[in-house]
Nucleic acid binder design. Structure first.
Lengths: 248, 248
DNA sequence: CGCGATTTGTGCACGGCTTCACAAGCGCCT
DNA sequence: AGGCGCTTGTGAAGCCGTGCACAAATCGCG
């Protein structure tokens, strides 16, 4: 299976990564940056796995998909691995991101420093409310959503964040796609319909809480019972996977 | 999978639901509420599946785990199904949630209406910064994190949201667990270490963007290529029912 | 009262992901 | 130089989730 798509001169290719692996690479990347700051030159799979909260075998298999990365008997070169992962994730340059909806949540996202430090640059803010247009947030001015096509073109934006109310999200998504955006991070609690070729990932805060609620409910039902067999390693780090791309 | 279906007949129990199913139930619930508002009494699996953005067979299999819910030839009773799902998710009463860290993101979360309308009540706000303690947000007063045990006890809080900087998150998590919290929603970009029996779910905005970045990177690499053999089902948008519409 | 249209519930097969366990490779020390 | 200990990379097995396709069940209608 090691297709080993070896380009002629070390082609920077990455033919097919398992989606589950892709979802974990950013976590590894974050852990690696942390290790680098602490002065580590190399890490063992065990160490990095612990820092990223995963199984070490899984980590090794994930990294093995990137080509030759580690050295047996030694471990992984931290900076080299950082470069490799950033390469694969397409983080070699800062990607411009548009943020639509500067309400309650949008305001916070616009001010979130984490985007800037991890490969992204919020390049534009939009809102449909003329009352908000012109407002300055974190050094950016809010523009009207009608300017979307123009700004997307100007700033080479391919990723957008939707932080509008649910009832507006689909309309915004349509206009984003029309303007040329091909990846959307959706914070609105609704399903987005987008054409093929456009990726949508969804973050719904209430859903996360409801999942936790289920486990709470289940736990309390268990404690009401006599000491039944309690499986040890069931819960814990729950990770999310699966971006959605819904066809029309 | 210790046992299959322990409930003899009337058991309102739900011993083991597949985790993937649990993660989808909230989405169904949201779609159902939407349908109810539109005056629908019943839905077919096809209709509900479309509203929730999933495959209809998957939906039926998910719902079949809840016991007898639908009526063949008719569909599902909307209000009944809402009740069932809320029962299973433990949303029969509003759960009290603590929010720790009222910085940039915490402020927004404290003001987010979606929590209130979907089964939760933000019962307390905490921060470690004495300069912030006492501040009023959305009708709540920010308390110092030292008051955690007391308030958690008073308000019967079992779920907490961490919206602190990453370097403080582990410490906060420790204190939360110590105070009796057993479910944590973590917005800080770091791995939390918690004892068995405590659930952690993580939301990392930058990670979501980095996953999108990967797909962007991959898409742009594809368009740069000549019309090579495009393998139909691999990384990309081959996730959902869209797979059928994928041109092969 | 029976028939057909409709929709649920599910057996089954397939593919992907995870985990174990171990051989292969690498550096270090003697 | 050679052996030893450490760590990676991976074959293989098992588990979980998905989707198809169809039998079972229900309603409406003649």
């Amino acid at each position: 299976m090691s297709q080993q798509r070896t380009g002629p001169t070390g082609g920077p290719d990455f033919p097919d990564l398992p989606e589950a692996t892709v979802a974990r690479l950013p976590e590894y990347l974050r852990a690696l940056h942390h290790l680098a700051e602490d002065g580590h030159d190399t890490v063992s799979s065990e160490g990095l796995a612990a820092a990223a909260g995963v199984n070490s075998a899984k980590l090794r298999k994930d990294l093995s998909h990137l080509g030759r990365t580690g050295t047996r008997g030694v471990g992984y070169d931290v900076t080299l691995l950082i470069d490799q992962i950033e390469q694969v994730l397409g983080l070699t340059h800062r990607r411009a991101v548009a943020l639509v909806g500067v309400g309650n949540l949008g305001h916070a996202l616009a001010g979130y420093a984490g985007f800037g430090t991890r490969g992204f640059r919020i390049a534009a803010l939009f809102d449909a409310d003329h009352g908000r247009v012109g407002e300055h947030i974190n050094g950016l001015v809010v523009r009207h959503i009608d300017d979307l096509p123009e700004v997307v073109e100007q700033e080479s934006i391919s990723i957008a964040v939707i932080a509008t109310p649910a009832h507006a999200a689909q309309h915004v998504a349509d206009r984003l796609v029309e303007a040329g955006v091909t990846s959307v991070l959706n914070f609105a609690p609704c399903v987005l319909n987008v054409p093929d070729g456009v990726d949508v990932r969804k973050v719904d805060l209430a859903i996360e809480l409801q999942i936790l609620s289920f486990h709470e409910h289940r736990k309390s039902a268990l404690t009401a019972l006599p000491a039944a067999v309690q499986k040890p390693g069931r819960v814990g780090m729950a990770n999310r996977l699966g971006g959605e791309a819904v066809a029309t």
